[in-house]
Amino acid sequence: MSELYPTYYLYLSAFLFGAGIFIVISKRNVIFVLVGIELILNSANLLLATFSKADLNGQTFAIFSIVLTVCEVAIALAILLNVYKTHRSSNLDELNELSNE
């Protein structure tokens, strides 16, 4: 393999981060926000992987991060299902009270 130009990965990571932020802020559906969160986490993973160099700590932590992300998404979705049951909507604007009664 020839030398890769590593800085582009960083820029990609920054881009992913920015996009993720954009989606989290501006989208109204909960699933959309979860997608955005995934993008952010992935940008962090990419960063970790880019800087892992000789030792493999970067990768290790990236693996940890992925595992935790999976847990988080599972729980988030479970909560979403519960919230959807009471509010009948997955629109973030309408999900601003704990109980709809």
Binding site: G18, I25, S26, R28, N29, D93
Partner: peptide, 14 residues
């Protein structure tokens, strides 16, 4: 799902 605050979000993310 429609988006809101797109301009503000764009600025911040940018």
């Amino acid at each position: 799902s429609e988006s809101k605050n797109s301009i503000l979000a764009l600025i911040i993310s940018l």
